[in-house]
Design a protein around this nucleic acid. Structure first.
Length: 635
RNA sequence: GGCGAGGUAGCUCAGUUGGUGAGAGCAUGCGGCUCAUAUCCGCAGAGUCGGGGGUUCGAGUCCCUCCCUCGCUACCA
């Protein structure tokens, strides 16, 4: 039976336009999918959209549409975008698909019947504007990121998944399967998270507040929330439990960005375990693309939309850069300058020119057809063959590990050596000296090498790869021979028609001028400052401490009452218990950030921040002279 | 504050269990070729391998310490 390969991207939330990050993840998945195709495997590639939740409902209202109309529209944007990047998915799943909903409910019921879902109380920060809970991490400076207002702490009853029950098992599993989560750094991170109590997972929302979701099969008053909906797409898409595709393709490789590591590395395996479903095969985690901010600054007038890069440099130029420049697990830096340099050196100068010069010679010396197929290799030819096979093998190994940058570098070693080989063989001299037999051997060897290079590049730059293969008279497109077999296949093929005189797939691009680079540097220096407007936003005031006591539930914190002369007394929690006795603080005039967002600290509300000086001896609260009026503004 | 990952040529990165003068590509400079997209090939310069200390006959590679970056986390606010 054919080996199978199943790869997924996350399903993308339909409240935002696709950006560079989405594009990278999906191109990587497509590249991996195509790579396994040319390894001769039967593959399946899933992507899609995540369409439930409040944010969608609100966005729909704004657009004066029903949620369904709204998600239909945005989901379509994603679905139609990918083909423009030559991304060929096998299925595009939407969490509003009826099949998906049924599948989610079936799994919920299964886990519920098993006793791993219970009803309990939930408390969290709730924003009435958004009609949703936020985790502390999602809050920006203690405020709802959308409404910039402090959330309210609410209790309500909900359903929970007994995730903690599987914590020990998961630790053992990850330790026993080093390949399960990669790269290593993220595996370590997951193990670190698992050292602490992961708790149980709240999986529902009452319908009275959220209707746009999948109803719990065992309680009509609730819908499921986020993870029991979203993660299950990976198996609902292929027809769990009885579907043929599920039987054939599961388990999958999941590609994700590092921001959703925890749900995929912890929630999802425990969910699968609880449902008695085989775990996924591997999780592959990549970093972020940083986009050079100065390039995007308005003052320079050179704002760059990364997706427009494909229009400027072609789909393949863009895809190549993404795959070549991002080292799996690390953050990458996206800049047009780097893209141009990479495009010119690898694609235009090395690969493109190599194809062009070879075709040109075959055309000039043999009228476009290499007839002599009776080749005899000299030692230097055999060296080239050895080197080519080695580099292609390394390429395959790297790609199997999702390390595209490393793989492409290995392939470039072969490409460079081909340019060297042409130079040292000097076909133009052979031609002058009429050594036509040797000349045809040299050109065949280069041509056969080019076939391998073009073939190996198909996963990354499919369109160009196909053009390259066609240009050298090899019309048998991928799937007729596996890449691994092709590596050691050094037999000439029939060239039926004259090969073209040249092939200019990647015309060189203009390099950035020095001027631009200097301006870029100038912009960078500016970033180290904050502007005056920003400073003005900070409201510093003098306040008198009228009461101070230890925090009931924390060693390092003091709870104080501070009078800012505004008619009400503020409660401020300060992390200075190690340095001050509560009594010695009372009566002091201190400096307070008056407009800092309120926040609960270990259960006590803090409505401001007391400034303090970090001295070698410890913290010293910044004080003002005693006769200064409370509420005085500092600037 | 704790844990983890890093800090190697201008840039992106390799450097096996410590051992011949520290590497590759890109970028820079010089030279060569002419089939080719001013492309290709060769040569060269450049690095106190984050700082300091230690173990060792010998350390980028082990130990300690400090500094910096990133991630996670916390009784930071």
């Amino acid at each position: 039976m054919k080996k199978t390969f199943y790869v997924t991207t996350p399903i993308y939330y339909v409240n935002a336009k696709p950006h560079l990050g989405h594009a990278y993840t999906t191109v990587l998945a497509d590249t991996m999918n195509r790579f396994h195709k040319i390894l001769g495997e039967e593959t399946f590639f899933l992507t899609g959209t995540d369409e439930h939740g409040d944010k969608i409902v609100q966005a729909a209202q704004k657009a004066e549409k029903t949620p369904q109309e709204y998600v239909d529209e945005i989901s379509g944007l994603f679905k139609n975008l990918w083909p423009q990047l030559n991304i060929q998915f096998d299925k595009f799943i939407r969490t509003t698909d009826p099949d998906h909903k049924k599948c989610v409910q079936r799994i919920l019921q299964l886990v519920y019947d098993k006793g791993d879902i219970y009803f309990g109380e939930y408390g969290g920060y709730y924003c009435f504007g958004c009609e949703r809970f936020y985790t502390e991490k999602e809050l920006v400076d203690g405020l709802c990121p959308d409404h910039k207002k402090p959330p309210t702490y609410l209790h309500e009853e909900n359903y929970f998944f007994k995730m903690s029950k599987y914590q020990e098992w998961l630790i053992d599993y990850i330790k026993a399967n080093p390949d399960f989560i990669q790269p290593q750094a993220y595996r370590n991170e997951v193990l670190a998270i698992l050292k602490e109590d992961i708790g149980d997972l709240c999986i529902s929302r009452p319908k009275k507040r959220l209707k746009w979701g999948i109803e719990l099969p065992f309680d009509k008053n609730f819908v499921t929330y986020v993870w029991f909906d979203a993660l299950i797409n990976y198996i609902s898409a292929i027809g769990w439990p009885d579907g043929e595709k599920f039987k054939k393709f599961w388990p999958a490789y999941h590609i994700i960005a590092k921001d959703i590591l925890k749900p995929h590395a912890i929630f999802w395996p425990t969910m699968l375990k609880a449902a008695g479903i085989e775990l996924y095969r591997g999780l592959r985690v990549h970093g972020y693309w940083k986009v050079d901010e100065t390039k995007m600054s308005k003052s320079l007038g050179n704002v760059v939309d990364p997706l427009s890069m494909k229009d400027k440099y072609g789909v393949d130029g863009f895809r190549y850069f993404l795959m070549r420049e991002m080292h799996l697990g690390h953050d990458g830096n996206f800049s047009e300058k780097n893209l141009i340099e990479r495009f010119n050196s690898d694609l235009a100068n090395d690969i493109g020119n190599l194809f062009n010069r070879t075709l040109s010679m075959i055309s000039k010396y043999f009228g476009g057809i290499l007839e002599n197929k009776d080749l005899s290799f000299e030692p230097k030819d055999k060296d080239l063959i050895k080197l080519g096979e080695d580099s292609l093998k390394k390429y395959i190994e790297s790609f199997k590990g999702f390390k595209t940058a490393e793989g492409l570098e290995n392939l470039m070693v072969f490409v460079r050596s081909l340019n060297k080989y042409i130079d040292s063989s000097a076909p133009w001299t052979l031609y002058k000296e009429k050594k036509l037999e040797r000349l045809s051997t040299v050109l065949w060897l280069v041509l056969m090498s080019l076939k391998k290079v073009a073939y190996a590049l198909w996963p990354v730059i499919p369109e160009s790869s196909e053009k390259m293969l066609a240009s050298i008279g090899w019309e048998n497109m991928p799937n007729t021979i596996t890449l691994e077999d092709e590596i050691s296949n050094w037999t000439p093929w029939d060239i039926k028609e004259k090969l073209p005189k040249g092939l200019n797939l990647f015309p060189r691009k203009e390099v950035f001028k020095e001027q631009d680079i200097k301006e870029e540097k100038k912009g960078k220096e500016k970033q180290d400052y904050i502007d005056f407007e920003l400073f003005k936003k900070i409201d510093l005031r003098v306040g008198k401490i009228i009461e101070a006591k230890k925090h009931p539930n924390a060693d390092k914190l003091l709870c104080t009452k501070v009078d800012l002369g505004e008619g009400k007394i503020r409660s401020i929690v300060a992390g200075i218990a190690e340095y001050y006795d509560p009594t010695e603080l009372v009566g002091k005039n201190v400096v307070v950030v008056a407009n800092l967002a309120p926040r609960k600290i270990r259960g006590v509300l803090s409505e401001g921040m007391m400034l303090a000086i970090h001295t070698k001896q410890g913290l010293k609260v910044l004080t003002a002279e005693d006769d200064i009026e409370q509420g005085s503004k500092i600037s």
